[in-house]
Design a binder for these strands. Structure first.
Lengths: 339, 339
DNA sequence: CTGAAAGCGCTTACAG
DNA sequence: CTGAAAGCGCTTACAG
């Protein structure tokens, strides 16, 4: 069995209570005693038992990280490691641990979250996605546990704490950038339609078109889970339109490169024949050919700030829901050309 | 305060001990009582407190995941999410949770691991990397806690449980594939030299050359942390050699594409002028141009099996150290050509 | 089949 | 400045 506080107490000739206070660096304990007890702790290789400590404190110093459908998309995309890096940094600075969801289906994830929360496994939660009618989010809203969402909640956003890019305006600006380059036939390849980020970007896309009197045509949009199977066909359809697009906005750099690959197979060249712009500015995008114009959404900062917000709420439960906007910026590289 | 076992007991008119046994589905409790108590638990929304349960059981049903230097490389590379996906699947199936290291430096990570282990925060550990003279590994060896390494330990490998690709032979086969294509001047771009995987692949590279009577020339090797800053120069140097290589083996697909980018900047074309092969078979590699020939190392399975091994050791501590080899296979695509 | 009691390893009022 | 005692929420021999 491991060394306990009692063992240390006995050896040091003090009470367990005193040892506990030395660990907590309680100012009412004499320096002399502290020195003595610390020496014994070190000699014996004592480490506090988290389970016991957490039980009495009724906290875990742990943040739960909930990601969508770990079995599939979430893991394919560099977004996940990067946002996790931000969370990780912040958590480490505050001496918090990270507990990861492992569920593959919505139902599994829901069960996990309930257990994390009710079982007091975590002190707070970062929800890494935002989708419409999400039971997980609804559960968290009703629970007392501090949490923050990466992304804008679909309903009643002001009542929850979240970080977000202004996806509507960012998408709008992006499309306007292409319009400024002379493009009028701009296609939009978006993500799954139940994700708020997809909805927002689609809206920004439409706003930009409207502003410049370009009619919205649903045939110019592809909305589905990419990296799935029918992408190639979608691109073929898009380029086979009576008036094919001269520019394509894709919701992720990786998807952009996938699209570029399909286009090259069709002997359509980027940016000569079609301009392409991505989102997320993955590390690799600057090295690939063509270097991808993209929107950097500060993924690391999204994670960092989300963790910060949860930690804040854990420290002070009275803090009202807060919304933090993280900047995004267009990075011009070589995948778009002026018409 | 949350609902406890006592609240349920009172409402159901039984003792807390009985409630506890109902939760554990103890066969000595009558069905009638079980039904009654379960109904009350449901009505009250009772969930067991993990901290308390773990304290008396002296286990946490949690696996610690230790990754190298979370602040930098580990997160840039799709290896991490993919291996995590494997671990996650296995852990979820066994109803284990995942606890992630957050440290950015070797020293921070070491401290975290010690706390995880001594503080009984986790029941087992998966070490996601293997490097030479790693204090973390040495600590784990001395501890009683079950653990598994992804990668071959540098010293005394038979005494630790690990999963690995046969990196030496895989690298050897890869180089021989290029030799079979007629290449004699083959460069090797490897990872950081304190990682065992880099050492092994370099050795395989050398073995292949030796077997075919091609002298090893250190000028044909680049060994450093790529994605750092001097990569472009290294490639320029390589291609400026009196006899430049006709083929380059890189230790990762992302690095391969970075190299391809630098080569294109030098007006050197792949595969026309230089053949390139990668490692790890990232999802995106098949879509990019040129489609990358690469070695698939079954990253998902590495994670899955590592988790499986730890779980096995947790269940039965008497199991001797085990070594599991995970297959790797060469995937021919369009980035290599016959001379 | 069920309960009272002890205990897991800590922390923290309460006393002194 | 320090200790004895109670308690965090659970589990599990021991009795009956």
């Amino acid at each position: 069995m491991a060394i306990t506080i009692k063992d240390v107490a006995k050896k040091a000739g003090v009470s367990p209570a005193t040892v506990s206070r030395v660990i907590a660096d309680n100012p009412r304990i004499s320096v002399k005693t502290k020195v003595k007890v610390r020496k014994v702790m070190e000699d014996m290789g004592y480490y506090p038992n988290f389970q016991a400590r957490n039980l009495v404190a009724n906290k875990s110093r742990t943040l739960g990280i909930i990601m969508e459908n770990s079995a599939a998309l979430a893991f394919q995309n560099p977004f996940f490691p990067e946002v996790l890096r931000g969370i990780s940094t912040q958590a480490h600075d505050s001496k918090y641990g990270l507990y990861l969801s492992t569920g593959a289906t919505q139902e599994e994830i829901y069960q996990e979250v309930v257990e994390m929360v009710q079982g007091r496994r975590v002190d707070g939660i970062v929800l890494l996605y935002s989708k419409i009618d999400d039971p997980v989010l609804e559960f968290l809203r009703k629970s007392e546990l501090p949490f923050a969402v990466v992304g804008r909640p679909h309903q009643d956003p002001c009542s929850v704490t979240y970080v977000n890019n202004d996806n509507i305006n960012t998408a709008k600006d992006t499309v306007e950038y292409l319009i400024g380059l002379g493009h009028r036939h701009i296609a939009f390849v978006g993500g799954a339609t139940d994700f708020v980020v997809s909805i927002d970007r689609m809206q920004g896309y439409q706003q930009a078109l409207a502003k410049h009197d370009i009619p919205f045509d649903v045939n110019y949009t592809v909305n589905q889970d990419f990296i799935q199977g029918k992408e190639r066909d979608s691109i073929r359809r898009l380029m086979g339109l009576p008036v094919p697009p001269t520019a394509i906005v894709t919701h992720d750099d990786m998807v952009a490169y996938e699209v570029i690959g399909y286009l090259e197979d069709l002997e359509i060249r980027v940016p000569d024949d079609v301009s392409i712009i991505g989102f997320n500015n993955h590390t690799i995008s600057r090295y690939l050919k063509p270097p991808l114009s993209t929107v950097d959404i500060s993924i690391y900062e999204l994670g960092l700030r989300a963790a910060e917000l949860v930690l804040e709420k854990i420290t002070d439960a009275s803090i009202p829901p807060k919304q933090v906007a993280v900047p995004s910026r267009l990075i011009e590289r070589g995948s778009c050309r002026r018409l």
